[in-house]
Simulated assay, not measured.
Amino acid sequence: MCPASPFSRSWVAMDTVTLVLSFSKAAKNRWSPKSTKHLSWRCPNELEFNMTSKPHGILLIDKELEWTSHDVVAKLRGILGTKTIGHTGTLDPLASGLLVILVGEYTRLSNYVLAQEKTYETEVTFGRSTTTDDAEGEIVKMVEMPALNEKALKESLELFNGTISQRPPAYSAISVGGEKLYKKARRGEEVDVPLRQVHVSEISLLEMTAETCRLRIRCSKGTYIRSIARDLGEAMGGAAFCSALRRTAVGEFSVSEALKIGSTAEAHRASLLTGLSAKVGLPPIQLQKQEAMDLSHGKKIGCRADVQIKPGELALAFYGDEIWAIVAEHQGEIIVKRGFGKQV
């Protein structure tokens, strides 16, 4: 704590360095707002010097209902103090669950996180269909259906196992003719939504009532759970829509490890996954010092006996606990596919 002075003014740098300076009248001419345009004022008579680095890592967020994925990212920009941030797979406002957020240099891994399987728990309500295939849309059809039968339901679920052709909802962010489908749908235009192939690794019945069932679905990227609900209703001889949806996992990341967006800034920073804990679906390899130096300069390195990368596959190279580069095997050597600008 600095002693009080006749002329005391506090300065705070809000970027990577925080400074609070109290100074005397004699220092007045040496310090002016012009020379410190990146600083902002705070309470006097304190001296702080808090060196903080820009955050990097993977943050797991348990998104609540009614938040958009964009809302979450925008909130975290302010909490973490960085613009270099993004999510890896949209969740609709009526869906809750796991959002994998990439921060700082880890945004370079977005394609690899996006490619991982996702796991959902969903509730399907039978006897009605909606414009959006979920609870947000208007009811467009009501069908008298008998109470659900477990045997018949499980037989219908088998139709959705493996690689299937799926028609995305009319209210979706897919572009047709250079425009998002939901924009066309809102104008009342009828659009021939193209079929797409997706893969469902698991679809299992968790529980059921007379007119609803709860399912666990593990699937590839680009799979619409709303479409599965709609098509399941048709397979059962009636109609259905997705009445609730929660994402529980992305690859090896689980919602049980995630934070709520209302957690403190300190909790968010402390929960950033870095290094070997950043499981993005690429096999990890550990570099020795000389190998890390060579890769930093764009050189190839030899494949050690204890390093196995299959031809055509990528791996994540680490030096210590730092991500160093995305690498690949090429003619018996390891080459850099994407560097992270690190130096030993």
Score class of each variant (00 low, 15 high):
297 H>L: 10
65 L>D: 14
50 N>S: 13
149 N>Y: 00
242 C>L: 12
49 F>Y: 14
43 C>M: 14
17 V>N: 15
183 K>T: 10
343 Q>R: 15
282 L>I: 06
339 G>T: 11
50 N>R: 13
48 E>T: 15
327 V>P: 01
282 L>C: 03
307 V>L: 07
12 V>S: 14
165 S>K: 13
54 K>W: 04
176 V>H: 02
330 H>F: 11
174 I>T: 08
276 L>Y: 00
168 P>T: 06
6 P>F: 11
308 Q>M: 07
118 K>C: 04
23 F>V: 06
319 Y>S: 05
290 Q>M: 13
344 V>R: 03
117 E>L: 13
322 E>A: 08
201 S>H: 05
256 S>K: 10
80 L>I: 02
329 E>Y: 03
98 L>K: 05
268 H>F: 12
318 F>I: 03
116 Q>I: 08
215 L>M: 09
123 E>S: 07
74 A>P: 06
135 A>M: 11
21 L>P: 11
198 V>Y: 06
247 R>A: 03
229 A>D: 06
218 R>W: 06
134 D>A: 07
273 L>V: 00
261 I>M: 00
210 A>H: 12
176 V>F: 00
98 L>V: 09
231 D>G: 02
270 A>N: 06
106 Y>M: 00
231 D>R: 10
109 L>W: 04
160 F>Y: 07
233 G>I: 07
271 S>I: 01
256 S>Q: 13
233 G>V: 07
